[in-house]
Design a protein around this nucleic acid. Structure first.
Lengths: 248, 248
DNA sequence: GCAAAAGTGTTTTTAGTACACCCATGA
DNA sequence: TCATGGGTGTACTAAAAACACTTTTGC
């Protein structure tokens, strides 16, 4: 009997989210400019106190919806607990950090004192929030490779070349449209919608529109190096793709 | 200003660890048999309250060392926060769960009321501890594929066939010694010690002893599907390649 | 010499990369 | 008809799975 005792040192628990979106061909994170004392003027992640009746995921979703009008979150996942005793001034607060993703075509209405900052060029951040942002960025980058997580960054319908821009921005280096299409198609992630986008000002063949086959995260590349004997020729079973979270 | 306020609902924070080890060719987890009331007789994970002066990782290491004499932990990593409001009876307790690994050749002295249970055949567990164990198991299985995490399960020196048994037990299906050796060697993880193990009762060629090249976890298979252009190849062809600089 | 276990060589399969070439459109 | 993207065909390469074969021991 340890896990239910409640006694000595009560402590606060907060939830924080690094909400990422690709805007202006750059992977960005939503940050608040702090107006009050500890670390005034620095930038911090949205979030807040965990309430008694909610778990951490409900909490971060509520707080994002309430305070930031980010209702179009297409993906939310836990990153890690940040618990250094003096990570914030004053009484101790343990934080559960989340990664949140928003498709590139929405422009959520956010309060005055917030802004989208490039994750690779952060302003002065408060507390340990920079570490959280970088963790979120790294997690996203890893998962873009072996899951279908692109769906969470892309509009519902898109062209391969616009998807290429999203992936390039998110990953931080340019990706070939040809191979992107090939890989995602082979994995069965891209569904042609049948329609096409108008060709640009300078002409050019109109691009076909696609959408993602699923809108929840799935591991698409189980990449199991030591995999069970292959059932001769059967297609890869999805069942044993284990999530590679925490690539730390 | 959100992250430093301390007010209304103080709540307790505990740390829990699923400590895994391969014993008797089976992946097992160390569990306590509860002697006291909530969930008496059920099996639960070692751990306990987070103290004011330590972060969660220090805390779980301290508690494992103190209570369970598991000092030979070769790897510890965070799994996730478990925070359902009523996950334990009584006042609310949020838990940070860890994965811990112990090499197969040590037999830590553990208290009377603990035992190593197969992760694939758990007894009746307390609270949400089963979910934590399964999460730990899945994380280990995933990481065995794309990291050098095998080092944490194996003795300092080992033969390939004993390593094969460890991997097979941990993964839950049998792994070929041939290919295991090949893959780990190619990745530069296996270092021959030069010596050999005595051959068994029935004869047979004596097995060479190996050790792992590193004793901290490293990602060995970056598996980046969309990777930056490989440096080994010729620079971009002039004609069609401009697309590449679009995103800088 | 023979069985047993270890280890290597060689082939096949799979997945991704590189790059040339063809296609559809606007001016 | 031609410049401008979009899309496909095909060869190349890397990595791992499968399996045959050789090596080294005890009896």
């Amino acid at each position: 009997m340890r896990s239910h005792i409640n006694s000595t040192t009560p402590l606060a628990h907060e939830v924080l989210a690094a909400v990422l979106q690709v805007r202006c061909a750059t992977l960005r994170v939503l940050l608040w400019r702090r107006a009050l004392d500890p670390h005034v003027g620095r930038w911090s992640l949205p979030g807040g106190r965990l309430r008694p009746d909610e778990d951490v995921e409900q909490s971060i979703r509520r707080q994002l919806a309430e305070k930031v009008d980010v209702k179009q979150l297409t993906h939310v996942e836990q990153l890690a607990v940040f618990s250094a005793p003096y990570r914030v001034p004053g009484p101790r607060v343990v934080a559960t950090a989340f990664l949140g993703l928003v498709p590139s075509d929405v422009d959520p209405e956010v309060p005055e004192d917030t802004a989208w900052h490039p994750v690779d060029d952060l302003p002065r951040t408060a507390f340990d929030h920079e570490a959280i942002v970088l963790r979120a960025r790294d997690r996203l980058r890893a998962k873009l490779s072996y899951t279908n997580l692109g769906f969470a960054l892309a509009p519902r319908e898109f062209t391969v070349s616009s998807l290429r821009e999203l992936y390039s921005a998110a990953l931080g280096y340019s990706v070939s449209a040809t191979n992107l299409q090939r890989v995602l198609s082979r994995r069965g992630l891209l569904v042609p919608t049948g329609s096409t986008a108008p060709s640009g000002r300078a002409g050019g063949r109109p691009a076909a529109l696609y959408s993602f086959a699923h809108d929840d995260m799935q591991v698409t590349d189980p990449f199991a190096v030591f995999k069970p004997p292959s059932p001769s020729r059967a297609p890869r079973s999805r069942t044993r793709g284990q999530a590679r979270d925490a690539v730390t």
